[in-house]
Amino acid sequence: MKSISGPIVLFTCEHGGNRIPKQHAARFVAHQELLQTHRGWDPGTLQTANYFHRQIPSQLFASQTSRLLVDLNRSETNPALFSKLVPPPSKSQRRELLETYYRPWRQDVVDWISSQTERRQRVRHLSFHSFTPELHGEIRTAEIGLLYDPGRAREREFCDIWRKAIRETFPEFRVRMNYPYRGISDGHTTALRKQFTPEQYAGIELEVNQQLFQRPSRLVKQLIAGLYQSWDQAMQHAASNLE
């Protein structure tokens, strides 16, 4: 049997925008300010994902539909799939949201990974997210978080390498592992791990403190370029030592 080769790169951006389709706009008339906050989207992530995607041959799946409409980073059984911060959708609306926005997007990602594994390619997946500096009165104590499954050696070892590379690029940054969330909590990468083996798939989530995206454009561009450079260094090191 031919051995698995790779890796090949997949980028996803589940919360890249705060758009609300016209047919659902009535539910959000009184929540326009909420849409602009971290509850409505992950600021900075689409810009970062697009930059990474432009640098190397890769596949990018990015959504600009607000997470307040339906959260592409949650499983269908998660109570947070439909936000409780806005009026709940009716049964018919829930069905329409799942069939129009949620299921096709998630299935496209699965189908693409499957097409690579059928060709004996190994997929390295990076999912882009950003987090609010303060949540429920708690100050987040990091600039960067790397989320992964500690039980998957490739994910764990890659994040160790990337963390060192980020610190070399941005010595002033606090880089924390599985922070501000656990890498094995309900999410897109967690769902994909259930469908693909560690030999086929490794999924990492990059979490960036949104304060970093609120700085002047020049500094934001430097941030994104530095994150890419550190990730590329980690990828090259992994290719030489881990694959």
Rank of each mutant, 00 (worst) to 15 (best):
F52S: 08
Y148P: 00
A80Y: 00
R106Y: 06
W231P: 00
R140C: 06
T65A: 05
Q107K: 15
W162Q: 01
I139H: 08
H136L: 10
Q222K: 15
Q64A: 08
F82I: 13
P216G: 12
G17V: 13
S75A: 15
L81V: 07
P87Q: 07
G6C: 02
S66L: 14
L68M: 12
R218S: 14
L34E: 06
F52W: 12
D160N: 08
V123H: 13
G6P: 04
A30G: 00
V175S: 03
Q229L: 09
R152S: 07
Q64D: 13
L81S: 03
L147Y: 01
Q236K: 05
H38S: 15
L192D: 11
S217F: 01
F131Y: 10
E14T: 06
K84W: 07
V70N: 05
C159G: 01
N178G: 11
E96I: 09
M1N: 12
H31Y: 15
L34N: 02
R122N: 04
D42N: 12
S230Q: 10
V86T: 13
F82Q: 12
E199D: 09
P87V: 15
S92Y: 01
Q210G: 03
Y201C: 01
Q121E: 12
L135D: 05
P171W: 08
V110W: 08
L81D: 06
M177G: 00
H125T: 03
S185L: 08
G44M: 04
G226W: 14
V9M: 08
R174Q: 12
R119E: 14
L60F: 10
H125L: 00
Q59K: 15
V220H: 07
L212F: 07
A30T: 07
A165M: 13
A234N: 09
A49M: 06
R94T: 15
N78S: 15
E168A: 05
D232W: 14
I161W: 11
H129Q: 14
T100D: 13
Q116Y: 01
L146Q: 08
S5I: 05
K221N: 11
E243F: 09
E138S: 06
G16N: 13
G145W: 02
A142F: 09
Y228I: 01
R103L: 09
V86K: 02
T45C: 10
R122E: 04
E205W: 03
T100L: 10
L227K: 03
P79H: 05
T100V: 14
Y228C: 00
E155F: 00
I8Q: 10
S75P: 03
T169R: 12
A238I: 03
Y51T: 07
P87C: 10
L34F: 08
E118V: 00
T45R: 11
M177P: 05
E207A: 07
F196G: 13
G203N: 07
